[in-house]
């Protein structure tokens, strides 16, 4: 049932498949970035390493692919909180190679997670930082991944200007609203795992074209759970449902939220928590929706992969689980 695809080198810490599932990027504890490609595009049998190089001194904790509209590129998030962008290019009739095209980082805070999203005209990169700030960088030239500008910086709070002490965030999770090809406004959901309860709860941010600013349009937490630390968020692809679906994992379990399409007069979107599911004991590492947005796969500290679906009556439940076995 489980078909082996690849054996990874010692010290590999993270992996990420590109959008079409044809290339795998991995990062290691000693700063090695590796790229693997399928030998034969038609089959998904054997992967071969097409690039491997030490790109940093530190530990690569996460690799994120850039959308294919902007080429073959990955962002490496390092344990020291910097992010570097690597791109596969053939420049000036040189052979194809991976080159670093940009590095992001600041002395004051560490980047915990980044995700790329596309707006009408450009590529945006959201970075969630250890001081509780969210930075949105915008690509200036669609053919050059070198030139970025900071488009916005804000805190993950509903009421701007809220006063709280110095925030310390351990982890963050960002998920863009999956784009479906039609022109649409850009939105993402973001939650923190921090010592500051105001920052933690997952908020949906939407870009207000008219005023060129990011606005929180929904908060995905019950009143009693607003301070809960968020482990992971995942925005489901919407193939035509009248609502959006977002999964949020906290220590209380896995919540499935429906977000309505029509904002109220304050600009807030109606939200409804349709399920709170328990399964993973402890931290949830990752959540991924399948291409139809009907099945959610999760993995967490208990070492299990779990699949979640809704039945004909709209009741969410755990459909199956996979236990890692040697």
């Amino acid at each position: 049932m489980a078909e082996p695809l690849l054996t990874l080198d010692n010290g590999t810490t993270c992996s990420s498949w590109n959008f079409s599932g044809t290339r795998l990027a991995t990062g290691s504890a000693i700063g090695t970035l590796s790229i693997f490609d399928f030998r034969d595009p038609a089959s998904s049998s054997s992967l071969r390493c097409t690039f491997k190089s030490g790109v940093h001194d530190g530990n690569i904790v996460k690799v994120v692919w850039v959308p294919p509209e902007y080429g073959d590129a990955v962002a490496c998030i390092l344990a020291d909180g910097t992010v570097s962008l690597w791109e596969e290019v053939a420049e000036d009739s040189q052979p194809l190679q991976w080159k670093m095209c940009k590095s992001f980082g600041s002395s004051s805070s560490k980047v915990l997670d980044v995700q790329f999203g596309m707006s009408l005209t450009s590529l945006k990169m959201v970075a969630a930082c250890s001081d509780g700030h969210v930075r949105v960088h915008e690509l200036l030239d669609p053919l050059e991944l070198k030139n970025w500008q900071l488009q916005a910086e804000f805190q993950n709070v509903i009421e701007s200007g809220s006063a709280f002490g110095k925030a310390l965030c351990l982890s963050a999770s960002i998920s863009w609203k999956p784009h479906n090809g039609q022109c649409q406004e850009s939105s993402f959901v973001l939650g923190f795992n921090s010592n500051t309860s105001e920052l933690n709860s997952s908020k949906v941010w939407e870009f207000d074209q008219a005023h060129q600013r990011w606005l929180p349009v929904a908060e995905l937490a019950r009143p009693e759970g607003k301070g809960d630390q968020v482990y992971a968020v995942a925005w489901a692809p919407n193939i035509g449902r009248p609502h959006e679906t977002i999964a949020v994992a906290t220590h209380k379990g896995l919540a499935i939220w429906h977000i309505g399409m029509n904002p109220d007069p304050d600009g807030r979107l109606p939200v409804e928590r349709v399920a709170l599911l328990s399964g993973h004991e402890g931290e949830v590492w990752q959540m991924e929706w399948d291409m139809s947005g009907m099945t959610l796969a999760t993995t967490g500290h208990d070492g299990m992969v779990r699949l979640w679906q809704s039945n004909l009556n709209g009741v969410w439940h755990q459909q199956a689980a996979f236990e890692s076995k040697s």
Binding site: M1, N10, T12
Partner: peptide
């Protein structure tokens, strides 16, 4: 060996 990648159908 540092890890494995498997595909589950």
């Amino acid at each position: 060996v540092g890890g494995k990648v498997v595909e589950v159908k």
